[in-house]
């Protein structure tokens, strides 16, 4: 077992989990409020990566240099891009369908996802090709015991952790958070209490989109290769992670993401040919035992 579960593999799994966590947080938030599997969430992440890419070269040309301030500037830019696209998508694709059957929104979400990907791929100056993502923060390696750790792993972990805590604070202790919880529980009652539910939903999408944008930047740095279809697979995995943790539940998304990351890593190390299949099998078993995810609340069926 030494070659399967050891310090290095645990760090590998945590890093993979952090990227999933960043995407899963936005996923689960949006789901918690509007009960919509936002298939386009992975594409918000892709747009974040491209925005950071563009911003880096723009800032580099104007200001010059890399390093800390540059990283913050590109991060803000990526989050802004994610936020804007999420707000636009919500306004024009999802809002008109708010009170229609849920599944029509789902198909629209798939349509939006395809639309964003194909537009990016057909736009001449973006194109379908792979692009090398710049090292906004130079990479450095250090050792913990026998395991090699990259500073990116630390950054990914730190950002995911910070965002999760921030989000929990937001949802639990702010007025907006209270409104979000209210809308999530009962839209009509929330409206009667004087909550502008469209505003709350739109704010949720924006926060989720900004998170996806940040995830895009971090993923771009960690795996420095971006292309228009880069969001599909991580989006799917993050969605699975969110479901595993109990969809709509913020700490659950985080937990689910790290379990996915570790499970995939150990499964691949155990048998790389069947790696992905094993990860899915674990997921199915967990869901069979806990049908509402690990941290999902038991809700009684409404009669």
């Amino acid at each position: 077992m030494g070659s399967i579960i050891n310090a290095q593999q645990i760090i590998n799994g945590l890093q993979l989990g952090s990227i999933y966590a960043l995407i899963a947080l936005g996923y689960t938030m949006v789901y918690g409020i509007v009960r919509l599997i936002n298939f386009a969430h992975g594409d918000f992440y892709m747009i974040g990566a491209y925005a950071a890419y563009g911003a880096f070269f723009l800032f580099n040309a104007v200001l010059g240099g890399a390093g800390g301030p540059m990283a913050v500037a590109t991060l803000l830019f990526a989050m802004l891009a994610g936020l804007s696209i999420a707000a636009l998508t919500n306004r024009f694709a999802y809002r008109p369908l708010r009170y229609k059957p849920k599944l029509s929104s789902l198909i629209t979400a798939i349509g939006v996802s395809m639309f964003i990907e194909y537009v990016f791929s057909a736009t001449p100056f973006i194109g379908a090709s792979f692009r090398a993502f710049p090292a906004i923060i130079p990479q450095s390696l250090f050792k913990i015991g026998s395991a090699t750790v990259s500073n990116y792993v630390v950054i990914d972990l730190a950002v995911a952790g910070t965002l999760m805590i921030g989000l929990t604070v937001l949802v639990k202790w702010t007025k907006l958070g209270k409104a979000m919880r209210a809308v999530s529980q009962d839209k009509d009652a929330a409206r009667l209490m004087g909550i502008d539910i469209e505003k709350v939903i739109s704010a949720t999408f924006m926060i989720g989109g900004a998170f996806a944008g940040a995830a895009g930047l971090l993923a771009g740095m960690t795996y420095p290769r971006i292309f228009p279809y880069m969001g599909i697979l991580p989006g799917l995995k993050a969605f699975i992670a969110a479901v595993l943790g109990g969809i709509g539940n913020i700490p659950g998304a985080m937990l689910g993401a790290y379990i996915m990351g570790l499970a995939e890593t150990f499964a691949s190390a155990y048998n790389s040919l069947l790696g992905e299949g094993i990860a899915f099998a674990i997921l199915i078993l967990v869901l069979l035992v806990r049908p509402r995810g690990l941290l999902g609340e038991k809700t009684a069926d409404k009669i």
Partner: peptide, 13 residues
């Protein structure tokens, strides 16, 4: 959605 994920998982397996 939980069922959706499980069926998706079966397909991928």
């Amino acid at each position: 959605d939980y069922l959706a994920i499980v069926t998706l998982g079966f397909g991928e397996i």
